[in-house]
Simulated assay, not measured.
Amino acid sequence: MSQSVVPKFPAVQKSLHTELKKRVQAYFDEKGIDSTGNPRLFTKALLMVLGFIAVFVHLVFFTPVWYLALGECVVLGGLVAGIGFNVMHDGSHGSFSTNKGWNRIAASSISLLGANHFMWNMKHNMIHHSFTNVDGVDDDIEIGALMRMAPSQKRYKMHRFQHFYFWALYMLLYLFWIFFSDYSKYFSRKIGNVPLKKMSVKDHIEFWGVKLYHILVFVVIPVIFVGWLSWLVGFLVMSLVAGFILSIVFQLAHTVEHTEFPVADTESHKLPDEFAAHQIKTTANFATRNKLVSWLVGGLNFQIEHHLFPKISHIHYPAISEIVRKVCMEYQLQYIEYPSMRQAVAAHVRFLKQMGR
């Protein structure tokens, strides 16, 4: 049964979150470094954005032969996800730079991809990061009747096969996000059961400005230069690749074996655990020793650290993960981690199979 009231976290005397913050801050004080991004992150961000623009321009205005064009569409889909993970994500959390202006610019890269930052901020920063895996509140586990992503959600017969067909559904995420989800939130004025905060005139203008830009740049102009069919094939390839990468990375962080789906008390509306314990129990890491994976997904394979310290840039997660792991041992909390991407995907498939039973 989905929860209709936004839950609360219980107050505790010995706060785990306070202890974690104290130890992590001590690390930054000892090293004498900022908790935001560094030149390596800025270089990566620049490379990804310039790469995205270059591939797009080459596809539309210098259209290569079809087999090279398809390959470039795959690369473009990967860059959509890469910019989301590495640039927009840190920027939206204020961890990209010590400069607020650069954080706003990095966060605004979501507009380059056709999505609305206001909706993302509400859905991700305010709701998902607070009430992770809470059915009826966390929109990331609300896929509707097509999939069962939490034990409290209703099970349908087709869910017995969701561990087979999820691949296809995940590919549709980017298309669904750009062409349906943003609009649904805008007109319904809510995300799941949570009302949207009031949008300013500037928010409304930005919403429609980004959507008009996206239609013009990603639909109208390419159709004019390469034709309807070539555009359709290329746009679908790019979108399906981006959708799958975005989906699988986010799902491996929360909907795998061992992660929990807390339910608030029906009378007090309080969740079982304080904030930090809640985040640790509902989140998993994967492939943290794989530097290539960490580079490509913007440190989101260190999802436990990200949920505890979203305002710290992902470039610091490998170092602070050792601190978090040690505190988890002291507090007798399971630190959920899968050594490889393959093992994490397998754990996700087993989870989906279990939810379908």
Rank of each mutant, 00 (worst) to 15 (best):
V5I: 14
V6F: 01
K14R: 10
K14Y: 14
H17R: 15
T18A: 15
T18M: 06
K22H: 12
K22T: 15
V24I: 11
A26Y: 12
E30M: 04
S35P: 01
T36I: 03
M48C: 01
L50S: 07
G51H: 10
F52T: 01
I53H: 00
A54I: 09
A54Q: 07
H58G: 03
T63D: 06
W66A: 12
Y67L: 12
L68N: 08
A69Y: 11
A69G: 08
G71E: 05
L76W: 13
L76M: 12
L79D: 12
G84V: 09
M88K: 05
S92P: 07
I105R: 08
S109D: 00
L112V: 06
N116Y: 02
H117I: 13
N121P: 01
M122R: 09
M122Q: 15
K123R: 13
H124C: 14
N125K: 13
S130K: 15
S130H: 08
S130A: 15
T132S: 14
T132D: 04
N133M: 11
N133H: 04
V134R: 03
D135S: 15
V137K: 02
D138A: 07
G144T: 02
A145P: 00
A145F: 07
M149K: 02
R155G: 01
R160V: 00
R160L: 07
Q162N: 06
A168D: 01
M171P: 04
M171K: 00
L175Y: 03
F179I: 02
D182G: 12
K190C: 10
K190W: 09
V194Y: 13
V194H: 06
K198T: 11
S200L: 07
H204L: 11
H204G: 10
W208V: 02
G209W: 15
H214Q: 13
F218W: 13
V219I: 15
I224A: 08
L232C: 12
L232R: 10
F235C: 05
F235H: 11
A242H: 08
F244D: 04
I245Y: 05
L246S: 11
I248C: 13
Q251M: 05
L252E: 02
A253F: 04
T259G: 04
D265N: 15
E267I: 07
H269I: 00
E274S: 12
F275G: 08
A276C: 10
A276D: 10
A276H: 07
A287N: 06
R289W: 03
N290I: 09
V293H: 08
W295V: 05
G298Y: 05
G299C: 10
L300Y: 04
N301H: 03
Q303A: 12
H307F: 11
P310T: 10
K311G: 05
P318G: 04
E322S: 10
V324N: 01
V324S: 07
R325A: 11
K326D: 14
V327W: 03
V327P: 06
Y331C: 01
L333K: 09
Y335I: 13
M341N: 00
R342H: 11
V345I: 14
A346D: 01
R350S: 13
F351P: 08
F351M: 15
